[in-house]
Simulated scan of single mutants.
Amino acid sequence: MSTTEQLELDPAEVQAFAGRAVADAATWMATTMTMFGDRLGLWRALADSRPVTSPELAARTGTDERYLREWLAAMTAHGYLTHDPGAGTYLLPPAHVPVLATESPAHIGGLHQALYGLTGMLDRVLAVFRTGGGVPINAYPRDWFEGLERFSAGWFDHLLPQVWLPTLPELEAALRRGADVADIGCGRGRALIRLAERYPAGRYTGFDVHPESIAAAEAAARAAGVADRVRFECLDVSGGLPGDYDVITTFDVVHDAADPRGILAAIHAALRPDGRYLCLDINSSHRLEDNRGPVAAYFYGVSVLYCMTTSLAHGGAGLGTCGFPEHTARELCTAAGFGTVRRVEMENPFNILYEITH
């Protein structure tokens, strides 16, 4: 007799969980259709919040009307669009526009592009699930990295200069004077480029292990007109940073590093005595029971599909997305030789910000 047969199951509990599981599957489908809307420019075409018919939208976007009509139905059923059956029109409500259609702190188009990129990695991750090891960072598609840049653009374009830095007066004063700044795990360079635009007296260097991201960062710096004070280098800094710096930053980097202890030790060694290390990482707890709900579930899923597996692919620690919470951050930073780890007060469901000094 199976364990299930031995138990007396409550049919109402079974039915309730079945309903939840079906709803979760429906959410996955809605997210997939939302990715299509981002990929095909459909949300941008709906951004004026004016009613439009499916033939009109098909002509505007260069898409097939029959497919588009089915997509519109899916998005209406999920509550992302409204539908006027009499006029046969569809409308993107104004409150949905900044989330789906235009660049803003609330925009999640980059998240959808990144998830679109991750869908192509499922077979690779399934394989290492059985064998151990991991999927290396250079196996991931361009959509993943471009999507991450778009998703984090809200931080660097709106939160870093206007919200975070004003809470760090000593660090911001150093930037205004003209600091030597290093960004580790710089990706496609957006954070340094924004800092260089706002604080032109500084000298900025970005380091990353992904050559394609470094090439994109260099092109972006040239396009922004800041290449005279921003440079990028493809380098694993866990063995040491070249030079020393007034300000060092990591933005959602330490938790998926192959050698987080090595990176923190390198930062400590390269940070000048009165320098400041600005560390943004995931808002989570070191206790699984505290990490509940949709956001935590998303973190753990991304960990399996990227953060943990890319670290393990290089023989790394495999901390995972939730692997550098405040408890661990304080422990590892103290072990690296830092004297002060200050959590910056801010309300953010995704991230915690720390100012760390000698």
Score class of each variant (00 low, 15 high):
158 H>L: 14
141 P>L: 03
311 S>Q: 06
285 S>C: 06
261 R>T: 10
166 P>Q: 05
158 H>T: 09
308 M>S: 08
167 T>A: 15
317 A>R: 05
286 H>P: 09
303 S>Y: 03
91 L>C: 15
111 L>A: 15
215 A>H: 01
14 V>S: 10
30 A>K: 03
269 A>R: 13
239 G>L: 09
201 A>F: 11
304 V>L: 14
194 R>H: 03
26 A>P: 01
238 S>L: 12
107 H>T: 07
132 G>N: 05
299 F>W: 13
87 A>H: 07
102 T>P: 00
313 A>D: 07
19 G>F: 03
355 E>I: 09
19 G>T: 10
51 P>I: 02
314 H>K: 03
157 D>E: 11
20 R>V: 06
354 Y>L: 06
72 L>T: 09
70 E>G: 01
236 D>E: 11
209 V>K: 00
36 F>T: 09
287 R>E: 11
117 G>I: 02
191 A>V: 00
3 T>K: 13
153 A>S: 15
161 P>A: 11
190 R>T: 02
316 G>Y: 06
73 A>E: 08
112 H>R: 10
331 E>Y: 12
141 P>I: 04
146 E>K: 04
249 T>K: 00
148 L>E: 01
108 I>N: 02
321 T>Q: 15
156 F>M: 02
220 A>N: 05
184 I>Q: 04
345 E>T: 05
134 G>L: 08
344 V>K: 00
262 G>P: 15
137 I>T: 08
56 E>R: 12
121 M>K: 14
173 A>W: 09
300 Y>T: 15
130 R>D: 13
287 R>H: 13
356 I>V: 15
255 H>C: 04
148 L>H: 07
345 E>K: 00
105 P>H: 00
239 G>Y: 11
108 I>Q: 03
335 A>Q: 12
274 D>W: 07
285 S>F: 05
196 A>N: 04
291 N>V: 02
92 L>F: 06
46 L>A: 07
98 P>V: 00
348 N>F: 02
102 T>D: 08
260 P>T: 12
225 G>E: 04
216 A>S: 10
280 L>V: 09
227 A>V: 03
312 L>W: 01
74 A>G: 08
244 D>Y: 01
184 I>V: 14
37 G>V: 02
82 T>E: 11
100 L>W: 05
218 E>M: 02
294 P>D: 00
332 L>G: 03
193 I>K: 07
164 W>L: 15
255 H>M: 11
15 Q>V: 12
195 L>V: 06
107 H>S: 12
165 L>T: 05
212 E>P: 06
111 L>C: 08
100 L>T: 01
84 D>P: 09
77 A>R: 10
285 S>K: 05
91 L>G: 05
146 E>Q: 08
110 G>L: 01
352 I>C: 10
237 V>A: 13
333 C>Y: 05
156 F>T: 03
101 A>Y: 04
226 V>T: 11
189 G>F: 08
44 R>M: 12
326 E>Y: 08
148 L>G: 04
44 R>W: 01
148 L>Y: 05
272 R>Q: 15
29 M>G: 08
160 L>G: 02
84 D>N: 15
318 G>N: 13
246 D>T: 12
249 T>D: 02
190 R>N: 06
